[in-house]
């Protein structure tokens, strides 16, 4: 691995900037996402900050069962994010539709619209679960980078 790649990967792992998008959620999960940023939980310990625009973000925290109105908009937000990008589905609604599953104006789950890297269940998902999810996502990304690196080394 080139030294510049190592620096980039280090920076990516230490600063997962997040964007939050409410795709028809009831506010429960959204408020818990904000609660995760405030002093008691403080997700900034892991280098995360909440950004207002998808172009600055690495991780999309998406809550809600995805209403038909918002499906196209969610895809557009996802497409605006730079690579590598990850989507975390927060809450039971975002994972599978939850209690709202089967309603006429929802498409039931974030994975119906965009690819999802991680599911965090709960109604609502608690701030500790959200932080745990982000940290686990980073761990798995780190592992996948290491594996790719080893493969390259062996290939040589």
């Amino acid at each position: 691995m080139k030294i510049i790649d190592k620096v980039i990967n280090w920076a990516r792992l230490k600063s997962p900037w997040v964007i939050h998008f409410n795709a028809g959620a009831c506010n429960g999960c959204d408020i818990e996402v904000v609660a995760a940023l405030t002093p008691t939980y403080d997700i900034e310990r892991f280098g995360s900050i909440l950004r207002g625009t998808p172009r600055h973000a690495d991780v999309l925290l998406c809550s809600g069962p995805v209403t038909r109105q918002l499906k196209d908009r969610l895809v557009r937000i996802y497409e605006q994010m730079p690579e590598p990008k990850f989507v975390i589905a927060i809450g039971a609604c975002a994972c599978s539709g939850g209690a709202i599953d089967g309603c006429y104006s929802v498409v039931s789950g974030v994975d119906q619209a965009v690819p999802v890297s991680m599911y965090i269940p709960g109604c609502p998902a608690s701030p500790d679960a959200i932080i745990d999810g982000v940290v686990k996502l980073l761990k798995s990304y780190e592992d996948s980078l290491k594996q790719a690196d080893e493969k390259n080394e062996n290939g040589k």
């Binding site: 028809g24 918002l70 309603c103 929802v106």
Partner: peptide
């Protein structure tokens, strides 16, 4: 408004 409409009344 209307982006968040889920149809709970009907459900």
């Amino acid at each position: 408004v209307g982006y968040n409409h889920r149809g709970i009344e009907k459900a």
